[in-house]
Design a protein around this nucleic acid. Structure first.
Lengths: 350, 350
DNA sequence: TTGAAAGCGGTACCAG
DNA sequence: CTGGTACCGCTTTCAA
C-alpha cells in the first residue's frame, strides 16, 4: 500500500523516465532533456551520457502515448484503404508506409472493405487517436469528405483519388495520358472501331479514364458509336466478358477494346474466345494498371502501367509537407502512366 | 500568440470532456461515466442522455491517447509485414485487420521491406506506442524473437510463420498436407522422377514444405535423387527457371516439378519452353499459393491453394484471445491448404 | 545547467 | 447516483 502505486520497479512494469532518472541519479526533467537532446535546452554532455547509458541498461522505451498527450503531437498517420485485395492497393500502401516511417510516423492502417459503415467506424477510430494526418484511398469522386473530417482540422491527402467539389491535396495519375497512349497505339495499328469498357465512374480515376476516352477519340476524329462506350457498376472479369460479348454479337463489333482495368481486359479474352474469335488477330485488347502476371497470360496483355508505389510515396510526401511546412499551399501531385505494349494488340483486321 | 496555446475553446481546438461536461451542466467525472457507460458505475439514464446529446452537438471525440495513458490499455495492435508486394501478404493483413477492428483495435501497420534494420526501427516505433499486442509475419524460423520483445510482456502471435526454438502462438498452414496432396496427385499421374524447387528454408513454411517433400517421397517409396531437390536463397521466377533448366539439361531430367511458390513454377514454364519441351506434355508443374491469375496463365497452373485470409483472421483471433482470456494457454492454429488441379499437370510421358 | 512543478485529457477511487 | 480529486508518463515553463 505504500510502494506499489506508481512503482515501476526494476522487474515490475515497464521502466519509465523516473526509473531512468533514479538510476542515473538525476532529476526526472534532466533525464527527459538528456534523452530528447532538445536544441533549446542544453544538457551537460557527461550527464546526458550518464542518462542514456542508464536508459539503455534498464531497457527504457519512451511512452509515445504520454508524450503525445503532453505535446499534442501524435506522430501517427491514418491510412484508409477500400480493399487490400485490389492489386493496386499494396504498392500504394507500401509506398506510403515507407515514406511515413522514414519521417518517424507510425501508420494506422484500416481496410474498409468498401463498406461505408466500416469506413465510418474506422475513421472514428483513427480520429480518436488524434492522428496527425490522414491518407484516404477510399474517396468517392461525387461524395463530400466525411463531415467528421471536414470540421476537424486534420490534414487530409487523397491517394489515387480526387474529389469533384472539394479541393483536397492528392497524389494521382494523369489518366488522360494513359488513355491517349493506349488509343494512339490502337489507332496507329489501324483500328477505328474501338470500344471502351470502363470501370465505374464513382472513382475519379474511372471518371477521368472515361472522359479521356471520349475526348481523345473525338480529338482524333473517330466517330465513336455511343454503344461502344460501356460503363457500369461492375469492374470484374465477368463484367468485362459480358460487356464485350454483347458488342461482339452486335451489328458493328469493335476491332479493338480498351478496358478500364486488367481484370476486365482478361474478361474480354474470354468473350473473344467464346465468340469463336482470336485475340489479337480478330480483336485487340488493352488493359489498365499492369497488375502482376498480366505479362504471363495468353496473349501477354498490352496495358497501361501505373506507378502506384510512387503515388503512395507522393501522397505521404504531400502529407508530411503539409505537416511540417507552414504555408503548405494545397498542392497536388500528378504522376504519369505509360503504355506497355505486349501481344494482345495488333493491326486491325479491316 | 494569445489563443493558440492550450486553448480548447468552443470554436478553437478539439472539444474535450470538460467542454462536454460544461455544455451538459454536469461534472467532468459524470460526463466520463455517462459516455463510457461502464457497468460498474451507474449513471442516471436522463443524465446520460443529456451528456450524450451535448457530446454529439459539440462534436466531441474522446481522446484515445489520454485514455490509454490513464488506463494503461492501448487498443492497438502492431502488424509487421516483410513485404506487402508479396502476393500472400494482402489477404493476411486484410484478414487480421478485419478481426482486430471488429474487436475495437486499431492496426498499426509496418512494412519492413525484408530489411532487419527497418524491422528494428519499426518494432521500436510500435513498442513505444505501447501496443497491446503484436502480429509478426516477419519471423525467421532460425532466429530468436527480437530481444526487445522477449523481455517485454507484449503478447505476440506469428502469422504464417513459426519459430524453431521459441514456442510462440501462431496461425499457420499445414504445409505437409499441401505437399502430400501435390505429390500424390503427381504420383497418381504416373510420375516417379519428381523434382522439388523450393523456397528458402529460413521461413518455417519453406522449411516445412521441404521437409514434407522429403518425408512424403520417402513414404511413397520414391527414390529421390538428391540433386532433384534444390533449395537456394532465391524464390523468384528467375530462380525457378534457372534451377529447372539445370535439371532438364542433366542426365535424368524429372518428368514433374513441384515448386515452392507460384512464381518459381512460372519460371519452370520458361525453362521447359526454352528446353524445347512442352508443359505439361513433357514436364508437369505444380505451384504453391495459388496467387491471382495463376489460373489464367498458359497452361493454367495446378497449385496449392492456401487460405491466407483465414490465416490472418485466426492470427488476430489468437491475439485477441490472449488479450482477453486470462489463462490463454499458448495455443496455435493450423489451417489446411488444398490442391487445385488445373492444366499444368498430366500423365507422365514414360 | 539542473531542480521544481504544472498540467495534457481522461479514469477511477472516494466521499457525499 | 454525482462531485471532488489524485494521478498515468512525459514535456516544458520558471527559478535557482
Amino acid at each position: 500500500m505504500s510502494m506499489d502505486t506508481g512503482m515501476a520497479g526494476p522487474d515490475g512494469l515497464k521502466p519509465t523516465l523516473r526509473d531512468v532518472a533514479r538510476a542515473a541519479g538525476v532529476h526526472l526533467a534532466t533525464a527527459s532533456r538528456a534523452l530528447s537532446d532538445s536544441k533549446t535546452r542544453p544538457v551537460n554532455p557527461r550527464t546526458a551520457a550518464l542518462v542514456r547509458r542508464a536508459a539503455a541498461e534498464i531497457g527504457y522505451v519512451p511512452d509515445q502515448v504520454a508524450r503525445s498527450l503532453r505535446t499534442h503531437r501524435t506522430p501517427a498517420i491514418g491510412v484508409l484503404i477500400p480493399d487490400m485485395s485490389n492489386p493496386v492497393m499494396p504498392p500504394l500502401v507500401r509506398g506510403a508506409e515507407q515514406v511515413l516511417a522514414q519521417h518517424g510516423y507510425t501508420t494506422l492502417f484500416a481496410d474498409t472493405d468498401n463498406d461505408p459503415a466500416a469506413e465510418t467506424q474506422r475513421l472514428g477510430m483513427l480520429l480518436s487517436w488524434r492522428v496527425a494526418g490522414l491518407i484516404l484511398a477510399t474517396a468517392r469522386r461525387d461524395q463530400p469528405l466525411a463531415p467528421e473530417l471536414a470540421q476537424s482540422k486534420v490534414p487530409v491527402v487523397l491517394m489515387s483519388r480526387k474529389l469533384d467539389a472539394t479541393p483536397v491535396p492528392s497524389a494521382t495519375v494523369d489518366e488522360s495520358v494513359g488513355i491517349a497512349q493506349a488509343l494512339d497505339h490502337l489507332i496507329g495499328l489501324g483500328h477505328r472501331r474501338i470500344a471502351y469498357l470502363g470501370v465505374p465512374l464513382w472513382t475519379s480515376a474511372g471518371h477521368e479514364r472515361w472522359a479521356a476516352f471520349r475526348d481523345v477519340t473525338r480529338a482524333r476524329g473517330l466517330a465513336q458509336p455511343e454503344h461502344h462506350v460501356v460503363v457500369g457498376e461492375g469492374y470484374s472479369e465477368h463484367d468485362g466478358e459480358a460487356a464485350l460479348a454483347r458488342l461482339l454479337a452486335g451489328d458493328d463489333p469493335p476491332t479493338a477494346v480498351l478496358a478500364g482495368n486488367d481484370m476486365m481486359a482478361l474478361g474480354c479474352y474470354a468473350a473473344i474466345r467464346r465468340a469463336g474469335l482470336t485475340c489479337p488477330r480478330d480483336v485487340s485488347v488493352v488493359g489498365y494498371n499492369d497488375m502482376p502476371l498480366t505479362d504471363r497470360v495468353e496473349p501477354p496483355l498490352t496495358t497501361v502501367r501505373v506507378p502506384y508505389f510512387d503515388v503512395g510515396r507522393q501522397a505521404a510526401g504531400l502529407l508530411i509537407e503539409a505537416l511540417t511546412v507552414a504555408d503548405s499551399t494545397d498542392r497536388s501531385v500528378r504522376l504519369t502512366p505509360r503504355l506497355v505494349v505486349r501481344a494482345s494488340t495488333t493491326t486491325s483486321p479491316r
